[in-house]
Design a protein around this nucleic acid. Structure first.
Lengths: 109, 109
DNA sequence: CCCACTATTGAATAATTGTTCATATGAACG
DNA sequence: CGTTCATATGAACAATTATTCAATAGTGGG
């Protein structure tokens, strides 16, 4: 059980340390695009179909689909098929927490 | 006072909503680079000079300095001058929290 | 079956970005 | 001062990437 202060020390000691950092950077890189942030923010409200996202965010279906694939690959969103639709949603709580902290960080800039 | 679930709704309602999302994406974009992640991770251990970072991470001084400027601009690190040295450190707790959640997200990938 | 609707994919293009190298600034010190 | 050490900066290059457009595939209704 790590104290909040010690988690970094324990991570630093792992033998796959650099691999963790690589995946971490990769995850942030995926989050670091306005379109993907807008998609994720929309999904914090409720799950949505590709078409709904495209319409709500004023993007082409193609652009949304491309970005959703990237978000899927980083396990930031999950999806299920429903007839001819595909419904996407935020994959887990970490994403929401990261978003919350990120918002608090940028508040007052 | 927002409940954890409502923060997104309250952010979505703000008139500078898109601006918040822009800065949020910008912050993640800055975090989304392996070199910068390595620098920040090193700084979670203790504050460091530019030279120390360069040596510890096997980078040129120039590369580190360039990246530190980017991190500074996003207020992810702060610094103070000490003679001819400049000592950098993590700017606030949000950064550490975002890192922690990010690490938990990538665990098991 | 066709047709409309939804989603995905691949190629091409335009734009962004991290590193290197060379140079500049500035501080301490003999 | 002149030299050394630490940091910052600017330009150039290579590499990555988001979007658009065109095409493909799968679903369900009439």
């Amino acid at each position: 059980m790590d104290s909040k202060k010690d988690i970094f020390r324990s991570v630093r000691g792992r033998d796959d340390f650099e691999s963790v950092l690589y995946h971490l950077a990769e995850t942030f890189r995926v989050l670091g695009d306005l379109t993907r942030v807008r998609i994720l923010m929309a999904l914090t409200g409720s799950e949505m179909r590709v078409r709904d996202l495209a319409e709500a965010l004023d993007l082409t279906d193609s652009a949304v689909s491309h970005q959703l694939r990237i978000l899927r690959n980083s396990r930031l969103v999950k999806f299920r098929k429903e007839g001819k639709n595909v419904v996407y949603s935020i994959s887990d709580d970490h994403v929401a927490t990261i978003f919350r902290e990120g918002i608090e960080h940028v508040e007052g800039m």
